[in-house]
Amino acid sequence: MNALSSIAPPDLRDEVNALAEADDPRRAFLRACWFEASDDPSLQTHIARDLQGRPLLALPLVAKSVGPLKIPQIAGAYWPFRGAPIDPTTSVEELASALADHTVARELGPAWRLGPAIADDPSLLLLREAAAQAGWHCLERQISSLFCLDLVALRASGSWPSTKGKQKDRWRVRQLEKTGPVRMETFTGCDWTAATRDAIAAIEAASWVGQLDRGGDTKFHDPELRRYWERAAQDPVIAAMIRGHILWVGETPAAFTFGLEAGDTRYCIANNFDQQFNKFSPGRVLLYHDFEDAADRGFARIDWGLGDGGYKGPMGAHEDASVIDLLFVRNPVVARIAAYFWQRGG
C-alpha cells in the first residue's frame, strides 16, 4: 500500500538527497542537511512512496506557530525559498495516491504549511495538483514578487552594465582607495573560515539593517542564523553551492554579497555595506562584480529575492514570479474558515 515513512533523519538522508538530485536543478540545495541545519528538535522527515516503495516526495516538517496553533511546516531557511524535494518524473496520480493514504493523513495531521514558495515552480505545481486530488485544500496568500536578472539577455544587449555605470563605479573605487587599498575577496562554503563569517557579521552590524531594533534580518550578525549556514555547509554538496564576495577597504570589510548557486541560477540571499562608506556606494560596486562574476561563470539568471525594485531595476532586475505562502488543510469546512484568517495573515 501507499504509505508515509517517518524515520530518524540520519537513516533517510540518502533518500532525501536522491530526491533533491532528481528534482529541478534549481532546487538541488533541498538536501537532508539543508533541513537538519535548523537544529529544530521537532523535525520529522517523512517520505511518501508509491506502491513499490519508491520515494516520490520528502516532507521534512517542523512544528511552528500559526496564530494560536502549532502547524507542521516545511523546514529549511526562509531564503531562497522553502520546498519539499520531489521526483519530477512521478505522475500527479501516483503522488496523489500516496498523499491520499490514511497513514499519510494521520502523520501530516489536519494542516501543514509550505512557504515562502515560488508560485510558478514546476515541482510546487506538481505537489499542489497531487495534493488537491488527494483531498487537501490549498490556501494561498501572496507575500510579494521576486526580482530577477536575466544575465543572458542583459549580456546580449551589449549595454549592461552601462558604460556610464562602469565609469561611475571606477570613480567610486578611486574615492574608497583614498581611505585604504581596495580589494575584493571571493569565498565559497568549501573554503570560508570563521574570519570570513566574522567579516560579514561586522558589515551587517555596521549596516542600516544592523542598526534596526532587534538587529534586523542579518544572516551572520544573528548568531542563530549564522549557525544555520555553518551547519548547512557541513554537506560538501551544499558547501560548493555557497559563494560570496567581500569588498575590503584597507583592513576594514566594507561590503559583502552572499548567495547560493543551483542549476542555472544564482540566488542572491544577502548583501549589505558598512554605513561609514555610504557616500561611495561599495555595496553597488560589489553587486555588479558579483553579477558579472556569475555571468562569466555561465549562470543564466540572478534571483534577487524580494525587496525594493527602485534600486534593483536600474541594475537590470525585472519583476518576476510571485512568492506565496501555502497552507494545506484536510477538512473542507475547516479550510473555508481558515481561508478568511489565512488571507489576513493569521
Results as ranks from 00 to 15, higher is better:
L260I: 09
W229D: 04
Y267L: 06
L127K: 10
P332K: 03
W192P: 04
D191W: 14
R183K: 05
D198F: 06
H318P: 01
A100I: 02
P161I: 02
G345H: 07
T186K: 11
A294Y: 04
D169M: 15
A75Y: 08
P223D: 07
W171T: 04
R344W: 06
T257M: 01
Y267V: 09
E36P: 05
R27N: 12
A75F: 03
T186C: 13
A240E: 12
F220V: 00
K64H: 04
I200V: 05
A156S: 05
K279G: 12
L61H: 14
Q343W: 05
G215T: 03
D14S: 15
L56F: 07
D290T: 02
F299Y: 07
R82H: 07
A18D: 09
L151V: 10
A153K: 12
L149I: 00
S207Q: 01
H289D: 12
Q52V: 10
Y267R: 04
A18G: 15
L247G: 03
S5H: 05
S162N: 14
G316Y: 03
A194C: 04
P282D: 02
L247S: 00
D235S: 00
W34R: 03
Q73C: 15
G346T: 11
G250R: 11
L176T: 10
T186G: 02
V323Q: 08
V329S: 11
P122A: 09
V333F: 15
E177H: 06
Q211R: 15
V16N: 02
L69T: 08
T252Q: 12
V237I: 05
A131W: 08
A194T: 11
P116L: 14
S65T: 11
T257E: 01
P60W: 02
R214V: 00
V249K: 14
I143S: 11
W248S: 10
T252F: 10
I203A: 02
K168L: 12
D120R: 04
L19Y: 03
F220L: 03
D39W: 06
T188E: 03
I118L: 14
A239V: 07
H289Q: 10
N17K: 06
D150F: 15
A156T: 06
P88G: 15
P41V: 10
G210F: 02
G313K: 14
F328R: 04
I238R: 02
D101Q: 11
A254T: 03
V249L: 13
V152M: 02
A339P: 02
D290K: 06
A20W: 00
A335M: 07
D23R: 12
V333N: 09
D290R: 02
A100W: 01
L327M: 05
A28P: 04
G263S: 00
R336N: 00
Q211V: 12
V66A: 13
L326D: 09
E185W: 10
T89L: 07
